[in-house]
Amino acid sequence: RRKSKRKPPPKKKMTGTLETQFTCPFCNHEKSCDVKMDRARNTGVISCTVCLEEFQTPITYLSEPVDVYSDWIDACE
């Protein structure tokens, strides 16, 4: 008699959501930077609500707010 092989359980999909508020690289306030994605103009704007620092970068249809933040961090270095 042959043993029946069980199929492995399906893999769980990533359910965690990406951050939309970030720590400002200038004033170091946590969750003080908000990202606005202007898909019509293909630009992402991130601004700090505390020190009013602002950064704008081009985006694509695949871009997420975390991509705008990482572009800002890269531009600071």
Rank of each mutant, 00 (worst) to 15 (best):
K13T: 14
L18I: 14
T60F: 15
S32G: 13
C48F: 00
L18S: 13
M37C: 02
C33F: 04
K7T: 15
F26A: 10
F22S: 04
K36I: 03
W72E: 01
F55R: 03
G44V: 00
T17R: 06
S32Q: 10
E64V: 09
C51Q: 00
G16V: 13
Y69H: 03
S32K: 06
S32E: 12
S47M: 12
N42M: 12
C24V: 01
K12F: 06
E30V: 11
P10E: 06
E53D: 03
E30H: 07
T43E: 10
K5I: 07
V68T: 01
K13F: 07
Y69K: 02
S70P: 01
W72I: 01
L52R: 12
D34R: 06
R1M: 03
A75F: 12
K31P: 06
T49S: 12
S70R: 11
F26V: 11
F55C: 12
K5F: 05
K7L: 08
K3Q: 06
E19H: 05
C24M: 03
D34M: 05
K31S: 12
S63A: 11
K12H: 07
D38K: 02
E53P: 01
S70E: 08
D34G: 15
T17Y: 09
E19A: 11
S63C: 09
P58A: 13
S32M: 10
R2M: 06
D67E: 10
D74A: 14
P8D: 15
H29L: 04
T60S: 13
K13A: 05
P65Y: 07
T60D: 14
Y61N: 14
T49L: 08
S70Q: 09
T20C: 11
Q56P: 01
G44T: 04
R41S: 10
D71F: 07
Y61H: 05
F22N: 02
S63T: 08
A40S: 06
C27Y: 01
V35I: 10
G44L: 01
T15G: 11
V45Q: 07
E30S: 07
T57C: 04
V35N: 02
C27W: 00
A75Y: 11
N42I: 05
S70T: 12
R1C: 07
K36T: 08
K36L: 08
C27K: 00
R6T: 14
A40E: 13
L62T: 14
T57Y: 01
T60K: 10
P65D: 08
V68I: 07
K31V: 02
K3M: 05
F22P: 04
C24H: 00
S4K: 01
L62H: 06
H29T: 07
R41N: 12
R2W: 03
E19V: 11
K3T: 11
K36H: 09
A40L: 06
V45C: 15
S4H: 04
H29S: 13
E64K: 11
T23S: 13
M37T: 01
K11A: 07
T60E: 15
D74N: 11
I73Y: 09
P25Y: 15
P10Y: 03
T49Y: 12
A40M: 14
D74M: 09
V45T: 03
T49C: 10
S4F: 09
T23Y: 07
V66T: 12
I59M: 02
R39Y: 07
E54M: 07
V45I: 04
E54K: 12
A40D: 07
V35G: 01
L52D: 13
D71K: 14
C76E: 08
R1T: 13
C76G: 09
L52C: 13
E53F: 02
P8W: 03
C76K: 09
E19N: 02
L18T: 10
T60C: 01
H29R: 12
K12A: 10
V68N: 00
M37I: 04
I73T: 13
G16F: 03
V45K: 03
T57G: 08
S4E: 13
W72S: 02
R2F: 03
E19I: 03
Y61S: 09
L52Y: 14
G16Q: 11
K31G: 07
Y61Q: 15
L62R: 14
T60Q: 08
L52M: 11
D67W: 00
H29N: 12
K13Y: 05
P58Y: 04
K36G: 03
F55D: 01
I46E: 04
K5V: 03
P9C: 06
S70W: 07
V50F: 09
F55L: 04
V66F: 09
S32Y: 01
E64M: 13
L18H: 14
C76I: 12
H29V: 09
T15W: 01
L18F: 05
T57D: 03
